[in-house]
Amino acid sequence: MPTSAGVEACLPIRSDMDLVWVRQHVRQAASLLGFGLVEQTKLVTAASELARNTLVHGGGGRMDSARVTRNRAVGLQLAFCDEGPGIADLEQALSDGYTSGGGLGMGLGGARRLVHEFSLESTVGVGTTVTVVSWVSAPPRPREEF
């Protein structure tokens, strides 16, 4: 049974270089927990999107990584928090193709499709936290959307 060692972490997201560390940590943590190659790749890609949002739109922040369990299932939980401007219209932000900058607008919606559970909390003027969980095998309960 894999433990939390190498999975539990709090990483700063302040620069492009930090995004490299975030991806590297998520790949390593997912591999330690026993995720297969496809699931590892999906998690790393979701983390890359969310961490870049934290950096670019949220003005920087951090990622907290933790091992979680539910009904004997083991999962990886990643939380991306910033104290940036927040998101006024969550539905609009999540819709494919919406961007307030020069992006493709696929980051948030795409990340949601790459993980088992996704929650987005944001308060204008206070900040944004996106929390995702993926389970090592099938999700223990029906898919939870935010």
Binding site: T41, K42, T45, G110, L114
Partner: peptide, 13 residues
């Protein structure tokens, strides 16, 4: 690679 192809599809690119 196959894992990246599947990820691109889920991402919606």
């Amino acid at each position: 690679r196959p894992a990246i192809a599947q990820t691109i599809v889920h991402l919606g690119l």
